[in-house]
């Protein structure tokens, strides 16, 4: 399988002196095309930091972050921004849609930011909204939609334009169980179609949708499920 995301001995230290906090400590992590990797761990374990480093929103104190073989440190701000427009999709816990834009406009946002024409970007957005099952809500504003619908829009935004890396930070945290399952099913489907996905979650039940589970504690990878099947994890959760 092609490696889409690779973190090599990545550390991230916040503050200095007495206020120094190590969020990630020499973490090595990969996510390949067609693979959904769940990242689990208690609060403050470094899950979200891992995601922001993977998306190029933050820079590591040491180590290397590679997305599709490109070292983010060498790309510069503009290069990292371009990568987020074309290759990386984010899904957040609290949807994070821009309230002033319609569902279609929120989805087409990365394309428009990349200079794609409005009509072409809208067409791509409608396709993405169709993939997440809400093509008829294209012209609604976020505050006219339910939480589940908003999160579907967020996933459509993360996958629009053939993104190959989807970073999801507790995407079901603000949803009811049934809607949450729907969202995870969509993520899984996108990965099955060839994207690499990283899913940060507290819930083993949600991690069961992943191909692999990585456990973090105090910024260090303490365990990795490897080939444990989804069913086995689900069984463990039931126990």
């Amino acid at each position: 399988m092609t490696t889409i995301l690779k973190l090599d001995a990545v550390s991230r230290v916040h503050g200095e002196g007495a206020t120094e906090v190590t969020a990630l400590n020499a973490v090595t992590f990969t996510a390949s095309a067609g693979e959904l990797v769940a990242v689990m761990g208690p609060s403050g374990s470094g899950k979200s930091t891992l995601l922001t480093l993977a998306g190029g929103l933050d820079s590591p104190s040491s180590g290397t972050v590679l997305v599709e073989g490109a070292d983010l440190a060498t790309l510069g701000n503009q290069g990292r921004a371009r990568l987020r427009r074309t290759a990386i999709g984010y899904v957040f816990q609290d949807f994070n849609l821009i309230p002033a834009l319609t569902a279609a406009e929120n989805v087409s946002l990365p394309l428009e930011l990349d200079g794609v024409g409005v009509a072409k970007a809208r067409a791509a957005a409608l396709v993405a909204l169709g993939q997440v099952g809400i093509p008829d809500l294209a012209d609604r504003f976020p505050d006219e939609m339910s939480g589940g619908q908003q999160q579907r829009v967020a996933i459509a935004r993360a996958v629009v334009g053939d993104r190959r890396l989807i970073l999801a930070d507790e995407p079901t945290g603000a949803l009811d169980t049934e809607t949450g399952e729907d969202i995870l099913r969509l993520l899984r489907l996108r990965c099955d179609e060839g994207a690499a996905g990283v899913l940060v979650t507290h819930e083993p039940r949600h991690a069961a949708w992943a191909d692999r589970v990585v456990f973090l504690r105090d910024g260090v990878v303490v365990d990795e499920s490897g080939g444990t099947s989804v069913d086995a994890l689900l069984d463990a959760d039931r126990v």
Binding site: R84, R85, I88, Y90, I98, R157
Partner: peptide, 8 residues
């Protein structure tokens, strides 16, 4: 969010 979506 725009920055997260690749905005400069």
């Amino acid at each position: 969010l725009i920055a997260a979506s690749g905005g400069t």
